[in-house]
Amino acid sequence: MTKPKAIVLRTAGTNCDYETKAALELAGAAAERVHINRLINRDIALSDYQILAIPGGFSYGDDIASGKILANELKYRLGDMVREFDAAGKPVIGICNGFQVLVKMGLLPGDKYYKLNTTLTFNDSGFFECRWVYLKKSNTKGSRLWLEGLPDVFPLPVAHGEGKFITMDKTVLDAIEGNKQVIVRYSDTACETAAYPLNPNGSANNIAGICNAKGNVFGLMPHPERFVYRWQHPDHRSGFSDDDGFGPGLKIFKNAVHSVK
């Protein structure tokens, strides 16, 4: 059986590419770190891959705004390739800076191609913050693709300065909610509150990650690739890992791999 091919897209300032690649491989994909110039120069074709991951980092230093320059590059230089990839229903995951890119190129929330009506902006705290949070998953089409087999609440780390998800207006927020596109929210373990620092950035409706209406494109601020092994959790004995020593982050990558097999 051949392994699905996953492309871990990187550029200047990408910095979570190694661990994202490792997580995808652990999940059963054949993953490759690819510099965007190789796609721009048409050295390789995006269509040769089954999974696209845009990892975390500070693409182009997050100059202008986080993820903005890479978003524009994808939109204006590789727009057709990406559209084709999405149209084929192939899974796309954007993590942290990758989520910022997906939002800022308008692939998310994705009601119309490349329409910008949401953004990820500065944390309410005013600082970059690195901490662990709990995520509550919702039971929708998108979550079935990406979050199948995960407990209702599971922990992952966040590390960002611009992670506050907001929409252009209330209509957009209502539409995203109405379409059941919010598949992970910040929470406590009892699902009672998500006051700071549980919601680390002040996101509207405690939104931590959304998918498009089809469910194949998923962006989230927390880092699933940083909790694929039990020993990456602050408490090595925490009950969120399985008996083989794997953390819940791995499930997300496994689900992506499973969906293209």
Binding site: N15, C16, A23, F128, C130, P157, V228, Q232
Partner: peptide
Amino acid sequence: IVRQYDHEVQGQTV
């Protein structure tokens, strides 16, 4: 101070 530094990037901080 600690929280302003990304101490988890690379996924190897056990």
